[in-house]
Design a binder for these strands. Structure first.
Lengths: 345, 345
DNA sequence: TGCATCATCCAAAGCGCTTTGGTCAGGGAG
DNA sequence: CTCCCTGACCAAAGCGCTTTGGATGATGCA
């Protein structure tokens, strides 16, 4: 059933039918009702491709997900983020296009989705400290919103980010207040902007209290359970072992905990942990009383916000150029069972 | 730059240019080279929508992901699965369309992507023991492949699944051989087909050794760390506590471990754990020597296989109806550090 | 009554591609 | 020399929609 068929059944022109369905004013209320009723009855739905071709709008948003060939890790945060974003797209009638491509093909992929006209805009994931994708997208004139920020990027662009610096400052201060002096940071890969900022927050908090960051207590890498375990084992084996750990992910924190248990140390008494918690739906930090003391910021919510921002930019951008938008989310520190005063010895 | 422009620059007709680029024989080798060279130089890429409209093929695969309103969980397995599938799509020139919709809207969504013609086929996720989506897709004549199976579904359909029954049989036998008699099963939601089969395997193995499954030792629910913890705490508090746990997910297993630690029990000595391991990239079960004894089956690989199977079905199906295909994956049992002989008391 | 206005509808021209059904020249067979 | 292929190209008709630029008759107003 296509528009023409429907029009014939109604003894109307395709023009009128199209207009009736798309809410144009130059059609009488009576016929509009008739058309809508018929469309429902015949289960008519406009062909996506035809509509797109005619309007020049793809009604789709793209997410280009790089699959790194070195560290073959799919970001665990990813599922929740796209759940949030996808929810918004679906409600707004946009399609959600995903491209999973090897790291090196990203550039080509962006150019391609641009010149093939398959999307109206895209979301940029996992921005680096300095990220060439931003200027590429700008150059391509493809509307985009960055999930995160890129510190070394000069020009303006739209983003949604949590306040990484502030969060890790707060977490560090909290540990210092509890008497901890040797605090370890188990961070993500620090070419990633978020990890860089977290480290900054950590160091700034230490400096503000006259403490000097110790490189031996700062690790950076893929945020997995194994990372937490391995780094903790290594750090606790050396002299000057930390009495507290600050981790960038719940998974790492779980690894730290495993190491502590194995060494016979009690969490929250012998050693404290504060982690960042992305509030992933399948990896909850306990219920009312959290297992880990954590800074929390829902990645799913970030997904929703990114999507909404992008859609708004696109809709507005139809008429005139729009200024970039920003959304800075605060991550409160929620006290759980994993922290306590530094041991007195 | 569109086809017409390119044709004008080359002083050729759009027909010839189109044919040259799409590898049709009725164009001389000389002009083909010329056309290809020009296309590259002008960075020409055919407009997706136009191509689709003209060919009637969407060159896209859909994944409809239900967001349950009750248990707001995004399947953690999901990210790895789509990474695998997406990789294949990208390589084959297919787009990857995702629809994140509320549970109740699934039906409508499938009908919609069908009548709007936005995809050539789709992957069905998380099949239930009895799943109406299968007959819906059959009725819609939309090619599809199921990731998993649906036991109560009568007619044929294509699927990729791991041998859940065999895997859990094997795991249970292994524990019985180690002397365990009170074995707990911490399973996924048993309306899901995979969970149902796992339970079957578990019960069959017990029965084969003359053991009777104890309902008090069988839990079913969302597979989270908290689930593992809570169920373990409950079971160990009751008389007739299990000496071994069989879990459906690494996350649950981690929860079990946390409970054991809290109760001062030693893993692999006082209590054993065997888990299923989906081999998620961000949640590895240790390196060479696994932390948990586990049946292992890569979900990412399953994603690749589903995608390949679906694409093959679609390509073949262009000409004649194709018979459904099946792919049953074996999940070997890999011995790790979490199992040992049952305590003698 | 006459003219402008308006509400309501329609024909036809795109959107950028593929594909059908040609044309046309050159070459081999008869 | 003619006839018929055949290889190489092209014009034009779709694909299913939107949108421009009318057409038509009813209404308002002087």
């Amino acid at each position: 059933m296509n528009l023409k068929d429907l029009a014939e059944k109604l003894k109307l022109s395709p023009t009128t039918v199209s207009r009736a369905l798309n809410g144009y004013p130059e059609v009488s209320e009576a016929t509009r009702v008739k058309v809508e009723e018929a469309a429902r009855r015949f289960n008519y739905r406009p062909n996506t491709q035809a509509k797109r071709l005619a309007t020049g709008r793809a009604m789709a948003i793209g997410h280009v997900i790089p699959i790194s060939t070195q560290h073959e890790i799919v970001n665990p945060v990813f599922a929740d983020f796209i759940a949030g974003a996808g929810e918004v797209y679906a409600r707004s009638g946009y399609d959600f296009l995903m491209s999973i491509v090897p790291d090196a093909d990203q550039d080509r992929t962006y150019r391609e989705i641009r010149s093939k006209g398959s999307v109206d805009g895209c979301i940029l994931h996992g921005p680096l400290l300095s990220d060439p994708r931003i200027s590429l997208l700008r150059e391509l004139r493809l509307p985009f919103v960055v999930h995160g920020r890129s510190t070394l990027e000069a020009g303006p662009y739209s983003w949604v980010d949590m306040n990484n610096i502030r969060a890790f400052q707060r977490a560090t201060e909290f540990l210092i207040d509890l008497g901890h002096r040797r605090i370890a940071l188990i961070n993500g890969i620090e070419t990633m902007d978020f990890a860089h900022r977290r480290r900054l927050g950590f160091e700034q908090a230490l400096a503000a209290r006259g403490l000097v960051p110790n490189p031996a207590l700062m690790a950076s890498g893929e945020m997995t359970e194994a990372q937490g375990y391995d780094e903790t084992m290594a750090m606790l084996a050396r002299p000057g072992a930390p009495t507290a750990f600050l981790t960038s992910s719940l998974l790492s924190a779980m690894g730290v905990r495993r190491a502590l248990v194995e060494l016979g140390l009690v969490l929250g008494r012998d050693v404290s942990i504060v982690t960042h918690d992305d509030d992933l739906s399948y990896l909850k930090n306990g219920g009312e009383y959290p297992i880990f003391t954590a800074t929390r910021s829902s990645v799913r919510d970030a997904g929703r916000r990114c999507a909404r921002m992008l859609l708004r930019q696109i809709e507005l951008g139809q008429k005139a150029p729009v200024p970039p938008a920003f959304d800075l989310l605060d991550a409160p520190l929620i006290v759980g069972a994993s922290t306590g005063p530094a041991p007195s010895i």
